[in-house]
Amino acid sequence: MKEPESNRVPGSWHPGPAILAWLWPGAGHLARGEPQRGWLIMGGVLFLILVGLFVGGLGVVDSETQRLWFLAQVLSTPAIFGVEIAQTKIIQSWTAEELLPYIGIGRVHELGILFIAMAGLMNFVAILDVLYDLPRATERRANSPEQQS
């Protein structure tokens, strides 16, 4: 999995690790030989997703009523599609009366959406970081303790 340091050329593109970074947060950095950064990104993105779901409930991921927010949320991981499917199945299987206590409203609902959207947007930054090596990023990686060891 570890990419040799000689492959790190300023201005070079790495679509494979970028796809991995979208499939699972931090996986792109793990594939590029930066395990410490990978685990930290994974922890941060999953923390934001879990707090968002915990605070706002399943209703915070909804491609029907919050399409633009959903586009930001899905940048975090395709697992968001799973949350969307689970949410849709629950809504379809419950009656309106049963569903009422589980629908988030007001601030709680908004903040739940925001948490997962921020997870997606921050993971997008991580995807860009592994997709394209800027000179600064290459220098940073060359000087990192992980690469020196």
Binding site: F54, V55, G56, G57, G59, G104, I105, L111
Partner: peptide
Amino acid sequence: FVSPVNFF
């Protein structure tokens, strides 16, 4: 993770 936390 299903119902919202209305405390907030």
